[in-house]
Design a protein around this nucleic acid. Structure first.
Lengths: 127, 127
DNA sequence: ACGCTAGTTCGAGATCTGTCAAACTACGAG
DNA sequence: CTCGTAGTTTGACAGATCTCGAACTAGCGT
């Protein structure tokens, strides 16, 4: 199970995989869940550094913890303790170096899918 | 069970989701499995149109069938009956239009991860 | 010390997933 | 019609995953 080594990326950062430990399958699996994909898209806002409960997730706290752990252990995000909270940031640089364009295309695709809230059916059957 | 509508993309094509039915999460989930990722990378060879057993997969026939179905129902590949075989092709155009750059970056990442097998001694020792 | 807020850990349950073996279907060749 | 090849379907099983509630830990303010 827990195979994530203690990386001294930051003093208060939780254990996360080193770049060479990040596996493509794990990243894809981490991104394949709706809740986690939502976390990642919200975290993709420029300069976003949010604590876990700052997200509007349709799950309980314990389930949130689970999803954040999956994302962290896959190498998608970093969690840093800060007071009573934990700040989350995307590991954009690491992912961009390992899998160039991957995160960007996923974010773009997810961003395209999200506007179902503002523009549900934009497509007219007749064109 | 089968929620995949019959799309008349080709006369002998197996039922597959229409482009607007392809969900990002399903694609990511389909690509998150090592066996399926391998299928996709082999299928990414230019002009590749392979039948199911043309792949060197470490699983039995029934498991192969399962994986091909997952990929097809996710919209990643297309299966066309041809004689006694089924030819598989990537739905590159559809995916590129829906999620630009996604498949490409996944393929590039997978190709970088895989060279331990096909190009192990390919790196020219001397110029 | 006390409580509040943020988050984890611990079962537990329901569902999904990957895998196999065996039996089955479908097409083509002889 | 019979045989072989290609693939599917079914049933089963082990393990992963998502989810929850309840109890627990850790820092901050008063």
């Amino acid at each position: 199970m827990g195979g994530v080594p203690e990386t001294e990326t930051a003093p208060d950062a939780l254990p996360e995989p080193r770049p060479d430990e990040i596996r493509l399958e794990s990243v894809l699996h981490a991104l394949a869940d709706p809740v986690r994909l939502r976390i990642v898209t919200e975290l993709a806002e420029p300069g976003a550094e949010l604590n876990c409960l700052a997200f509007d997730l349709p799950v309980t706290k314990s389930t949130s913890t689970h999803h954040f752990r999956v994302l962290r252990e896959a190498g998608v995000l970093r969690q840093v303790r800060r007071g009573t909270s934990k700040m989350n940031t995307l590991r954009r640089a690491d992912l961009a170096q390992l899998y160039p364009g991957l995160l960007e295309s996923v974010l773009a695709a997810a961003a395209d899918r999200r506007p179902h809230e503002r523009a549900a059916q934009d497509r007219s059957p007749q064109g």
